[in-house]
Design a protein around this nucleic acid. Structure first.
Lengths: 139, 139
DNA sequence: CTTGACCCTATAGCGGCTACAGGGTCCATA
DNA sequence: TATGGACCCTGTAGCCGCTATAGGGTCAAG
């Protein structure tokens, strides 16, 4: 149960699967607090940084923007309040993801239609080229 | 059957639903050819530009990158060849879209799990915060 | 004392625009 | 003829979330 050993940026990088450059970037844009420095000016991270960075990575993997991550972190610093606000952020993000899926599905159907019509003839006959070109003919 | 009247950038903008700034951007990055100029240095577009810009917009709406659009345009300038290459670009893009949909669906499921577990208690009990924080506890 | 792995800062670039700032042009009306 | 307003011009900087490069400093092993 000694003092938690401090981590170099490289060690933190390996521990979280985040590149060194990205870690410095997170510090720069204020989602990861500035760590202590060694006499040689190397960053020295503690357990709190490891936890925080893990949180950030997980949220990013789930598609939250850095702004949303900032919100989530700020909310999680007010420990006493109910997590309704957090839930709200998550639900909003979920709605956005759902919308994106719908958009991509519509797009996929269009692409499939397009590709399905291609008969590999000469270019003038190509349905893909025809379908792409005249915007007004496709309501 | 007179000469096709030339369009100002604003007219082209309205005709294609593209902002004036974006049209100039397309010219700058080389997907839309530089138009003629009036004596007052205004851009004067012809029917070819209208067709080309419509093509670009439609392809962008379908999620093609500007690089892919460049490819499609270059391919469609070689009129004689079969449209196999075009088909290839489209199929590749379709595969990418399909992959994105799958990714987003996995992500949505995770978010739904997370949100479904929230019981709006105090923060310490919040499943969302817990689930976000410890990265190593989730396989 | 040198090698090589690691670390530092600062700056520029990616895609696909968007938003200024600071002007010029054109046409209708007074 | 003057003026107002709609339109147009160029150039630069900003957005997001990094990534890449240049040009150094630090540290431990051999």
């Amino acid at each position: 149960m000694g003092a938690y050993p401090s981590l170099s940026i490289g060690a933190l990088s390996k521990a979280t699967g985040t590149t060194v450059v990205t870690i410095r970037w997170y510090e720069r844009v204020g989602v990861l607090p500035t760590p202590a420095r060694t006499p040689g000016n190397y960053r020295a991270y503690g357990k709190a940084h490891l936890d925080r960075l893990s949180f950030i990575r997980r949220a990013r993997d789930l598609g939250f923007s850095l702004d949303e991550v900032r919100d989530l972190l700020r909310l999680s610093d007010d420990k006493d309040q109910s997590c309704e606000a957090v839930d709200q952020v998550a639900r909003q993000h979920l709605a956005e993801v759902t919308r994106k899926i719908a958009d991509l599905k519509a797009l996929r159907r269009e692409l499939q239609d397009l590709i399905g019509q291609c008969r590999h003839g000469t270019f003038a006959d190509c349905r893909i080229v025809q379908a792409l070109s005249p915007r007004q003919s496709r309501r």
